[in-house]
Simulated assay, not measured.
Amino acid sequence: MLRRTYDDQVCSVARALEVVGERWTLLIIRDALSGVTRFDGFLHRLPIARNVLSDRLNGLVEHGVLERVRYQDRPPRHEYRLTAKGRELTPVVLALMEWGDNHLPTPTGPPAVAEHVGCGGTVHARMTCDCCGRRVAPGTVVGRSTGAATPPGPARR
């Protein structure tokens, strides 16, 4: 199978998609965030082929999103635990979940909510400005080039 890449893109979103953009990968991360750690646990929650799951888990380990930890010697078996880098994907998964709830709702309501372990409140993905501290609506955000996005090339005159 020909792998699709974003190598020609000088873009942080494209680089992130190289790690989490393949089919099933964000669902594996979603399940890991909810406590699934074992291969059979992922298989039980996802209708995914064993070889595809193995490939996705290996890729997430390779990129430092998950770590493989042996929990049994004979036969050797491993758990897949989120790293700090992997846990930083929580707001991404929450934002996708909220978007799906808002724009692709099920007739019976949201199938899950994100709950704060400390108090039981519902957790939401929110955007805030680091300058004024205010909540920011999606329509009030613009992308601005930093100059770092310019691919290396011949000097311009």
Rank of each mutant, 00 (worst) to 15 (best):
S54D: 10
G120R: 04
P111F: 08
R45V: 13
H44F: 13
T83Y: 02
R50F: 09
D101N: 13
G147L: 12
V36A: 10
V92A: 06
T83V: 11
M127F: 12
G121F: 02
Q72P: 02
R30W: 07
G121I: 04
E67K: 09
V61D: 00
P76N: 02
K85V: 08
V92N: 00
Y80F: 15
T122W: 01
I28D: 01
P91D: 05
D40I: 12
D31M: 11
A149I: 09
G35C: 06
E88F: 05
V117N: 04
L33K: 01
D40S: 12
N51K: 11
A32P: 03
G120Q: 05
H116Y: 09
G120A: 10
H78V: 05
H103L: 13
T37M: 10
A137N: 09
R30G: 04
R156T: 13
T122L: 13
D31L: 11
V69Y: 03
V69K: 10
E62G: 02
V136K: 03
G64F: 02
P47L: 10
V123N: 00
V136W: 04
T106M: 10
T106D: 10
G109H: 05
V117Q: 10
H103E: 13
R134A: 12
V69N: 03
H63V: 04
R144W: 10
R30T: 05
A32F: 03
G120N: 06
D55Q: 07
S54Y: 04
V117H: 05
N102C: 07
L26K: 06
L89G: 02
G153V: 06
G35K: 03
Y71F: 15
M127A: 12
E62R: 01
R56A: 02
A49H: 14
R156I: 12
A95F: 01
P152M: 11
L96G: 06
I29K: 00
T150N: 09
P151K: 11
E67C: 05
W99K: 08
R50N: 13
S54P: 00
C129N: 07
P47W: 03
L53R: 01
Q72K: 13
V142W: 07
C131F: 11
L33T: 05
L94N: 00
L94A: 09
A149V: 14
L33R: 04
Y80P: 01
P75E: 08
L57T: 00
V123G: 00
V61K: 00
